[in-house]
Design a protein around this nucleic acid. Sequence first.
DNA 1: CAGCTCCATTGACTTTAGTTAAGTAATCAC
DNA 2: GTGATTACTTAACTAAAGTCAATGGAGCTG
Lengths: 191, 191
Amino acid sequence: MKNEILKYLSKYTVITKELENAISESTFIKTFRKGSVILKEGGISNECYFIIKGCVRSYFLKDGEEKTIEFYTEEQSVIPANYETFKPSESYLECLEDTIVSVGNPKLEKETFQKYPQLESLSRIIAETIILKQQVSFTEFRTSTPEERYLNMMKARPDLHQRAPQHQIASYLGIKPESLSRIRKRIISKK
Amino acid sequence: MKNEILKYLSKYTVITKELENAISESTFIKTFRKGSVILKEGGISNECYFIIKGCVRSYFLKDGEEKTIEFYTEEQSVIPANYETFKPSESYLECLEDTIVSVGNPKLEKETFQKYPQLESLSRIIAETIILKQQVSFTEFRTSTPEERYLNMMKARPDLHQRAPQHQIASYLGIKPESLSRIRKRIISKK
DNA sequence: CAGCTCCATTGACTTTAGTTAAGTAATCAC
DNA sequence: GTGATTACTTAACTAAAGTCAATGGAGCTG
């Protein structure tokens, strides 16, 4: 299972025996059942996750409604917003499917980075890559209509449509379920 | 001037003599006149910037219109989307004011990280912090109406309103200039 | 299997943003 | 300083999303 991480890291660097050791020493596997809540509002989190298999949704409550922050699937990292801060969480983490994750925590992380500085270097590079990718997503979102956002999502992550209910996808797109329903209808009639 | 960076870094760590050296060896100062274009569409960028004083806007063209990606001001880092990729830029970087920046480039960066691993560690931590902050901004944007976005911006970065023309702010908020004009009118009449 | 809950869809209506066009104010260039 | 350009505002109209309510279907539960 753990070689899923190595497979991911191999996109950024050559996997050495050292790196393999670093990963296996600093992470462990956990599995969650569909419907499990990994983190609740108000909860303290001290773990981060790399998704090996499955789907996790983060969301929070605003005006009594669930607002989906992100859907995390295979090869994505979940870092709770309160990771390492010891502050209560404002959001939830929920498994939409049976999910297998690789778990990290600050203590293990710190020790491993000291022992394997190349891993920290790799982490920096990946973090910077994620920043740029996030910025592209954000910009794309900002400059698109709800209809375009839906089409973009279907192109970039078509699997989400099978994995998450439509009202959660709607809130992820920043619109109401009724609007998403109409947008879908409009798209079909255009074809 | 360079101690502006140290001042910023001091939010994350204790500034050692070593760190001071690391910064002064790996960066240099550049100044740009108001209106200067730092990076054009199609241009290759191999520099990143830390803004000491001034304001830089990044934008790109979509359907013949300028879409503002971000306004960068004091203590913010500008990393062009094509930094280190050697691919032509899809966006522009333009100075809205006379601007003083500290410049970094991949070669200097790499050398410095090898010489001062603690700086790379700090960079990782800051990058991870930025990821979380970006996610909060994105989520806030997604779950807000245009009016709320404008109010949020005025609260979080009121200076932008003086520093950037309104139509650029409109595109930053993902709306048309006419809509921003109406939103402002609506807000005033509510008071 | 009946009843319940949750979800997606649809319709009627309201609100708000986009579009187009015109007019005014501000800025820049000569 | 004058003319030209650009930015901002306003208005009338269109298009799309939000709101509220009702319906029908899927899935769960006793």
